[in-house]
Design a binder for these strands. Structure first.
Ligand SMILES: [Zn+2]
Length: 274
DNA sequence: CGACTGGCCTGCTGGC
DNA sequence: TGCCAGCAGGCCAGTC
């Protein structure tokens, strides 16, 4: 599922292929992915040029401008299974909901579970729709992140998934970050030493940067912009490895549910907080 | 306000 | 071989 590194790669791909091009047409086969409506998106965007984009966490905002200077902003969130294909000879299947035409170059939006959204917003950086989204996890200063998390009483895993504290981590990289920081997913930030919290942030940034370099983690639902699968999955330490031996100590990795998500951790490397 | 839960969706898997 | 329950999870609305 696309997390920060995958979304960053999508953004780079969009810029590399489409910057300066004009959106000349929009074919909609499932309007539910467009907010507030297919008609509104078409009216606002068709005819405008893609000038740039901005990413915060897993959100992308595409910056368009019409010839008269009028701006238009489209916020994109891929959620679980959203994908964008800009590939020669791509044949859309039943899960392709949009085809955006950029002066003859077709851009396909595909989403098996239909959780993803493309929303018109009023600002290119701080739209109202993102008012509750915290700073980007990759760049948030440690001091700011600590202020936002240090008094929380819920499980640290739930806090790392809470995009209002900092944005960008999903289930995969949360489990990886906590393993690397040797912190139990149920530990509470309000009980954790500051140095240990700092280590969680440091590891989270490290994991995100590493995944970015490797083109992201690819399951069956993400293809990076060259159409090649990302190869970060091989490097995962705990995610998807329940019951297998810890790569550090050999103990059998355990699986529990935290914040409604499957959670894998090493009972020896990440000792119980109680 | 913070913590927690259910619902949205579809494809895949395992049990019978 | 087919059927179906259960699982996967990011985010939001609703509840306490
Ligand atoms: Zn271990």
């Amino acid at each position: 599922m696309p997390e920060l590194p995958e979304v960053e790669n999508v953004g780079r791909a969009l810029l590399a292929n489409l910057q300066g091009r004009r959106l000349t047409g929009l074919k909609v086969s499932f309007a539910g992915v467009l907010d507030p409506s297919a008609a509104a998106v078409r009216r606002r965007l068709v005819g405008a040029r893609l000038e740039g984009l901005h990413r915060r966490g897993k959100y992308l905002i595409l910056h368009f401008a019409h010839d008269d200077g009028r701006p238009a902003y489209l916020m994109l969130h891929l959620r679980m299974t959203g994908q964008i294909f800009i590939l020669d000879g791509y044949v859309p299947d039943k899960h392709v909901h949009l085809v955006m035409d950029f002066e003859g170059l077709p851009v396909h939006y595909r989403d098996i579970r239909k959780f993803g959204r493309l929303s018109l917003v009023e600002d290119g950086y701080e739209p109202a729709a993102m008012a509750h989204i915290g700073p980007d996890m990759l760049t948030v200063p440690a001091r700011q992140w600590l202020e936002r998390i240090v008094r929380r009483r819920g499980p640290i895993k739930a806090c790392l998934l809470d995009q209002g504290i900092a944005s960008g981590l999903g289930n995969i990289y949360v489990d990886e970050s906590l393993f690397l920081a040797r912190v139990h997913p149920l530990a509470r930030p309000c009980d954790i030493e500051e140095a240990e919290l700092r280590e969680v942030l440091r590891r989270a940034k490290q994991v995100l940067r590493l995944a970015l370099r490797h083109g992201g983690t690819t399951f069956m639902n993400f293809t990076n912009f060259q159409g090649k699968p990302g190869n970060f999955r091989r490097k995962l330490r705990v995610y998807g490895r329940a019951g297998q031996p810890c790569r550090d100590c050999g103990a059998s990795l355990e699986k529990i549910t935290v914040a409604g998500r499957g959670t894998v951790y090493c009972p020896r490397c990440q000792p119980d907080p109680s």
